[in-house]
Design a binder for these strands. Structure first.
Lengths: 198, 198
DNA sequence: CACTGTTTATGATTTGAATCAAGTCGGAAT
DNA sequence: ATTCCGACTTGATTCAAATCATAAACAGTG
């Protein structure tokens, strides 16, 4: 997260986009740095038979879609708003200008990339080789500690739908539902009024 | 990749390690920046029943295990040498010192993190939702263009074993072997003397 | 060359998540 | 209150990859 004042100082504009719109497409070239002011955004892929895979869900103050600004590649996934949003958008050149003049912002960005990589590494290993229940628990635990910054003794009220959990873990809704039931029985999670608590 | 001269100037030492040794363990705290001089290193996880998942294989001039230096997390995977290696090792503080005094090196590191994230994003989406053949092709194509920097018309001689392909894609050896046979039949790859060409 | 260990190969069987089909539930809108 | 729609649920069935078992091909070594 880069200080909004700094963003504005470097000529960032604020976009207002309604729920369900595309911000950029899979494969396209990165031209802007994006940071969320309000609302939520997801980055996703669709495979040939239309199944969605969610790379990540992003919340206020988080940036997204930075990697292709640094590496010479197209976006590995598209970005779509999941609520109405306000987003800071800073052209690539101005962004690099900012990083050069404010090294501490660059270190902050490195931290963001690093922790994203950490999440991806965990999920890759889980998705590839663990059973559904374990995948889900890992996703929830990651969300709890790294997104919501809660302590282990706190209780997280998961705000993902079953479908989103499925798309984040590469499972199917029915499997997620059945796995969650099993996890509840084992006492790993609680389900109150269909809401998952962990 | 950071210029070795610069590394040495900032007091990096060179480690010589034999094949099959551990460089750091899963979950441990990052204290050094590592960059390969000669040899190969892999980062991997093991799940409860001993199945290995390879997060990545790293070659000369590549660095590895940087994310936990930036984000406050333990290593998401362990690192192990797969050949005899010589490795530059720079203490964390000196590494940050270097980045501060040489912003261009910092941009280079950002590029590395970014392209690694790109690879992870691709593989995550593949692993979660595509068939074995597709996963393998994607892995080979990524390796071809991004690791070996070959053009599409060039032919890559894959130097992974079937087992390594399995561990990188989250499949099992037998499945990889059968999928490769099928891919050969379809003309997607060639197999000459058990070596895969793509 | 014979011996050893690793990698590749192939067939038979099992298994668990995906798929298919048909619901229910709950909240928002009319 | 009734309709409507998205989210959640449950059971039966299928199917592809994992598993198990076994062996051939090859690379390296004394």
């Amino acid at each position: 997260m880069i200080d909004p004042k700094l963003l504005i100082q470097f000529k960032a504009e604020i976009l207002e986009i309604e729920r369900g719109n595309i911000i950029f497409d899979y494969g396209s070239k990165a031209q802007f740095y994006y940071q969320i002011k309000t609302g939520e955004v997801k980055m996703n892929n669709f495979n040939r038979d239309g199944k969605e895979f969610i790379q990540g869900i992003f919340y206020p103050d988080q940036s997204f879609g930075e990697p292709p600004l640094f590496a010479d590649v197209g976006y590995p996934a598209g970005a779509e708003t999941i609520t109405d949003v306000e987003i800071f958008r800073l052209p690539k050149d101005d962004f690099f200008d900012l990083l050069k003049k404010h090294p501490e912002a660059h270190f902050k960005i490195s931290e963001v990339l690093a922790s994203r990589l950490y999440y991806k590494a965990i999920m890759a290993s889980e998705i590839s080789s663990q059973d559904p229940e374990h995948r889900i628990v890992r996703l929830l635990d990651y969300t709890k500690t790294h997104i919501h910054k809660l302590d282990p003794e706190d209780v997280l009220e998961v705000d993902f739908t079953r479908q989103q959990i499925a798309d984040l873990t590469g499972l199917r809704v029915e499997t997620v539902i059945r796995a969650c039931k099993a996890l509840e029985k084992k006492g790993e999670i609680q389900i109150k009024k269909r809401k998952i608590l962990r």
